[in-house]
Amino acid sequence: MLGLDKKDIVRELREQLLAIQGFKRSVIGQDVPDFGLNAMAPAFPFGVLPLGAVHEFISPTSACATAANGFVAGLLSTLMTNDMSCLWVSTKRSLFPAGLTYFGIQPHRIVFIDVRTDREALWVMEQALKCNALVAVVAELGELSFAQSQRLQLAVEDSKVTGFLHRKRPRRENTLACVSRWKIRPIASHTAGNMPGVGIPVWEVRLEKIRNGKPGTWYFGWKDGAFISIKPQDATVIKVPKIERYA
């Protein structure tokens, strides 16, 4: 009996700790949308993707950047189901709005802000994160400092808007005040029954850092408007397509 009590006490203490650190149950507990990331639930505090926080994505190559944007688009499609709008801030944007329809997003619901410098992008992101009429803000930029990321964190604490900070080819992977750090890498696509051709997109999702959670690596694909979890043994095998020859 004593052991159970201890467990309860520890859990309670942990929740209190989380609350002190800004993770209030009231924030994340209420109608948390189902992102379809159940496979990585043990990684998150309270078992759900923290909303009302800034997530950092790091992409070393343009292929990774596309994959990360795809993953973010997958998250956004769940966030935007209640018809709220989203702001997409970027320097050197190459995102093609029509490509978002594959992820179940109505591209006209997103307002794109194309700025020239990282400084401007950060200013826009901070302003946007303060606006609680938005559901999420995505920013694609290069460098930012710890102090700058703190400002973003302060902005979301009041408004509870979710921010996605996508850093493309940063010079240094410096520590930021973000709740998590993700790296998304594309891996071989899946087709039903190992048919030839390009199948559904599959990504290696590496959660390098998560506050009050457990980092790890998972594999996810995007199929029929939802994430699907892929077993590691399936994902690592790069399938060679059947070569068909025609007369």
Binding site: L95, G99, T101, Y102
Partner: peptide, 9 residues
């Protein structure tokens, strides 16, 4: 039609 997420200008 499946369109790419990133399109070169």
């Amino acid at each position: 039609k499946w369109r790419p997420l990133h399109l070169l200008e």
